[in-house]
Design a protein around this nucleic acid. Sequence first.
DNA 1: AGTTGGATGGTCT
DNA 2: GACCATCCAACTG
Length: 197
Amino acid sequence: MEVEAYAGPDDAASHARSGPTARNGAMFGPPGHAYVYRVYGMHLCLNVVAAPAGTAAAVLIRAVRPLDGLAAMREARLAAAPPRVVTDPARRADEAERLARVPDARLAAGPALVCAAFGIGLAADGLDLLDRVGRVRLDLPAHPVAAGAIVAGPRIGVAYAGEPAVSRAWRLGIAGDPSLSRAFPPAEPARSARLPR
DNA sequence: AGTTGGATGGTCT
DNA sequence: GACCATCCAACTG
């Protein structure tokens, strides 16, 4: 599991930085609802709105460790491939073969892969994730994650936002999780450890 | 192990 | 018209 926090107008890396628009509207809606957006013209990302309606904050779901429904996830990944791949039988077969080699733990190891593996589309934008009978929903974990098992680091892909947004350690993950989108940078070494001998 | 470039199109300046 | 909260294959070393 891996997430990133995005705030409101005071966070230059946040989609909410310039106020509400057609795209980010859900971010200004009620908490616990989904904010789904398209990036790079082809991928989708899922957020959980995390601030009262009228204000903006959200948590980007960057990676998930698959526990069940692995076959359904592989099917959803294939269905989420670009149209020309899904349509063309040869390319589709190639993609299915490639997906068969993807380890279970890597099926949702990235923000766009989360949407692909769970079959989440733009239709999910604004949905109430706390609705117990919703098609996409959040549940409480079977075992809570110990605070000591959580690692933090800078957010990915927000260099354009400049400081202080770039350096905020608002990317959180479970240490040692095989499903992280990528490794966390090593913790800053203690000052004494960097002194010359 | 790390870097580079292509795919691809909505969104905002 | 430039810019992306990305992913993957193809390179370099």
